[in-house]
Every structure is written in structure tokens, then in C-alpha cells.
């Protein structure tokens, strides 16, 4: 949609061309802000992040710190298919795959690193995941650290279930479910 804004281009009148009254008006505005904020600092909308955070609007909740979901036996749901690493536009995911000796799922991520300093929080990894293993719903906003290494998340830092998980609802991996059932863990 193109919106049209009519600009009032009338020539300046004498007082305006003098500048001084206009300058005084401008000073009045800024001075008012100055004194209002000086005597009522609570009105300033600044949030002291990271000590202080705002409740997130709904759409933003799906774009918070990543987590890897965990199966009932404590293994990651991730099967190291590399789809997230492939989809990632910021190249912030690093995976190294390994093989289970017994679990018929066969493949798991021995290393799963996300460099939040590089991440652009686009959520493409979540979209790409065929196993519903990665999610960005921790409601934690990364940042506000003093050390860059604090933004590098390893596998253990990522593995986390929310309350009510793990559930088999939506679990796409038949082999994993069979395995858990056979061990009485599902």
C-alpha cells in the first residue's frame, strides 16, 4: 500500500524566518522532557536488560533461545540429520554425528554446538527439523554477557525439556518409540 502524505509547503512567515521563536519552541519541548524525566524517572521506557526483561508478545516466544528436546531415556531426539545446519543462514550450528551401538535410531549428535553470537534467531532450524528435536521456546533471550564464550552453547546446555515433556505426541521417530517401549521407558 502506498500511503500519501500531504506536506504543507507554505512559505515561512516572518516569525518563523527569524528562527528564534521556533528555536525557543523546540527548546521548550526538549526541556519539558528533561524535567519530566528528571523528576519522574519511572516514566522512562528503558528496560535494564539483562537484569530486567519484558514479557514477550506471542510471536516472539517462538524465537527465543534454542533447546534440544530429550527422549524419555535421556537421549536427544536429534538424529544428527544436519538439516538445521544446512538451513542455517548464519552458519552458527556445528554438528558431529556418531552411531549408537544398540539403539536402532543409529545416529545421534556427539557434538551439537550453537554459536548464539552468530545466530540471527530466524527459526529456520526449527522449520527444517524433521524430528521435532530443536525448538526455540525457552523464553530466554540470549545476549547480555561479558564473555563471548558464554554465547557458545554445547550439547549439554541445549538438552532441555519443558514441563510435561517428553511425550510421545508428535514424536515422529518410530524406531525411537519402539526402542523406548522395548525398554519400558515410554
Amino acid at each position: 500500500m502506498i500511503s500519501v502524505k500531504k506536506v504543507d509547503n507554505r512559505p515561512l512567515n516572518f516569525l518563523e524566518r527569524l528562527y528564534l521563536p521556533e528555536i525557543a519552541r523546540g527548546l521548550l519541548v526538549t526541556t519539558r522532557h528533561f524535567f519530566v524525566n528528571l523528576f519522574n524517572p519511572k516514566g522512562i521506557p528503558t528496560v535494564q536488560y539483562p537484569e530486567q526483561t519484558l514479557p514477550l508478545p506471542h510471536a516472539a516466544r517462538e524465537r527465543t533461545r534454542h533447546r534440544l528436546k530429550v527422549r524419555a531415556d535421556g537421549s536427544p531426539k536429534c538424529v544428527a540429520c544436519f538439516m538445521c545446519q544446512t538451513a542455517c543462514p548464519a552458519y552458527c550450528i556445528h554438528i558431529e554425528a556418531a552411531e549408537y551401538p544398540d539403539n536402532p535410531v543409529e545416529k545421534y549428535p556427539a557434538v551439537f554446538d550453537i554459536d548464539l553470537a552468530r545466530c540471527v534467531m530466524c527459526g529456520m532450524c526449527v522449520e527444517a527439523c524433521p524430528e521435532d528435536a530443536i525448538a526455540m521456546d525457552t523464553l530466554e533471550i540470549p545476549g547480555g554477557v561479558l564473555d563471548r564464550n558464554a554465547l557458545k552453547l554445547g550439547r549439554e546446555a541445549l538438552l532441555r525439556n519443558l514441563a510435561g515433556e517428553p511425550s510421545l505426541k508428535g514424536a515422529s521417530n518410530r524406531l525411537a518409540n519402539d526402542y523406548l517401549k522395548s525398554r519400558g521407558q515410554a
Partner: peptide
Amino acid sequence: HPLDCPVCDQA
């Protein structure tokens, strides 16, 4: 055919 593509090397 199983839905193994995520773990299958042929993918």
C-alpha cells in the same frame, strides 16, 4: 520404504 531419511547416509 521407511522414513529414515534423517539418519540415512544416502539422503
